[in-house]
Design a protein around this nucleic acid. Sequence first.
DNA 1: TTGGTGTTGTGGGG
DNA 2: CCCCACAACACCAA
Length: 490
Amino acid sequence: MSHNSIHWFRKGLRLHDNPALLAALEDCRHIYPLFLLDPWYPNNTRIANNRWRFLIEALRDLDSSPKKLNSRLFVVSGPPTEVLPKLFEKWKITRLTFEVDTEPYSQSRDKEVMKLAKEYGVEVIPKISHTLYNIDRIIDKNNCKPPMTYVRFQSVVKAIGPPKKPVPAPTKEDLKGIFLDIMLNEKRLLLEKIDFVFLQAWVCKFEKPQTSPNSLSPSTTVLSPYVRFGCLSARTFWWRLTDVYRGKKHSEPPVSLHGQLLWREFFYTTAVGIPNFNRMEGNPHCVQVDWDNNPEHLAAWREARTGFPFIDAIMTQLRQEGWIHHLARHAVACFLTRGDLWISWEEGQKVFEKLLLDADWSLNAGNWQWLSASAFFHQYFRVYSPIAFGKKTDKYGDYIKKYLPVLRKFPAEYIYEPWKAPLSIQERAGCIVGKDYPRPIVEHEVVHKKNIQRMKAAYAKRSPEDNTITKGVKRKATSILDMFEKKSKR
DNA sequence: TTGGTGTTGTGGGG
DNA sequence: CCCCACAACACCAA
């Protein structure tokens, strides 16, 4: 019982499956659970109110403890490199623990913090628990470069074996004799929800492409924000699913729920292994495209006034609720980029980063590249129709009517294309297109064909060593990865 | 070297 | 209901 420990919460806002927190409690006299409000985030990223609120609630959840334990979570504002040294001295800290975070800013921040800790004689213990695997190990196993397809990724992780089991939450026994400032109040509600909602049959049958982007209540788990902030451990989720699968016939990756966790892991891996992953320029795997600069169109997309009800309804749900179905993300992402507006995926990435509760640096960048056919996905001639796609799962446009009440009186026949309705019908619906609801800002039938040709030209312009022979890309990637490897050898 | 395959397209044809 | 054209890249198996 000799250490004074800080456990620094960043992601991983939970007590269960938190190996770094357990490490902090070992031989510990006093534990200080800490969350820093790092000004780098509001200064360099976009965070809408909904997402702040989710974070605050998650922190409150961590902090909410039975009064009798007199517990608390320390929340301090300021840059980590300024705040932590003060706390090291004030609390006579000998040990700092935290969960490994692979994002570029986090990596540089943690490197600085580790240097400082050394100066103050503080032992640092980082532990992996945000991802299913050690991402570096996946890259190493794949010849020191990130696997570029899901199939390849699957074969690499299969060779590694299943993810590690989650570690248990600290018990009252672990805390005996420790001055604790945190509560052991797990997100019970959430775990109960998993047990309750995840009826076995539903879990076993789950196939992502069969779920609906526009059902009125979500057709998927909606656990992504919890996983994003680490309120729910991906490993805990994985092994709970394994329990549910046991002995039953069940769906398989890529479409199963295990498959969804592997998609997350896939983009975490590529984000670590590919330089400039959230940008087009300097990103060796990203097709270089001459995207248009069109602030009016971008604003119309962002503000749900493209004149395409399906697109506008999705963007409205995004703004109001901070969550939209994965396929809805496909529809609006394709529309913004290669499908209709020909605006850079980086612009869409910024809007999602701000509005999605589950906005995750790696997944956001990876999926935008996928949807814009800039990397990972290359069948750019497969363009989502802003009219036809939604009809498959919502013939009468109930989803549109929910989020765009101005259109609620339109008959099903015209709900996806109100501009085609005769004026008499528009009048009867109490909504004149061009006055009460915008006219479509582009002619989809025309622009999407033109855009396919522009995409074709962008692909053709890639230098031969960029596309035909992968050597060119590999060379670039490995040189970066060599550096990365050296850095990560502990 | 070649041919097949890949989470989630559309519109036209039979 | 299935099949095709549209026609690209990364990877793998033969």
